[in-house]
Amino acid sequence: MTDRFLKRYSYNITANDFMSAGKGSSSIKSNLKSLGIDANIIRRIAIISYEIEINIVIHSFGGKLHCDIYENKIVIVSEDIGPGIKDIDMAMTEGFSTATDSVRELGFGAGMGLPNIKKYSEGLEINTGSTGTLIIATINL
């Protein structure tokens, strides 16, 4: 299989909208199922995509979530507008979180988001600055 690009699914993610958070990842999951991708790989992609989606909802002013399908890999890309990640090394540490108490009451902010994304992907790139964050997570097929 080559790295030929096949298709992109895109979703707008709204900041602080906890009722809708997860809709994009749910749709990505259904689309991947309809493409006949292996269930274990879909599960890994769904976890990555959902963690990224929740991060956009919690930490940014809003953004976009993309799922790019290639012949030999799936790439989850997120682009958000927001304050960026101040300390990536700390953010990659299990248990470290800058989430507020109100976010924790909703079940998030356990400090497992980025570590989970890294755990389930084969490649992870993070470009962050004071105006926003770009995350690219790759899962090989």
Binding site: F108, G111, M112, P115
Partner: peptide, 8 residues
């Protein structure tokens, strides 16, 4: 009660 732990 922590969903990120569940995901992990």
């Amino acid at each position: 009660d922590l969903m990120s732990d569940v995901l992990a």
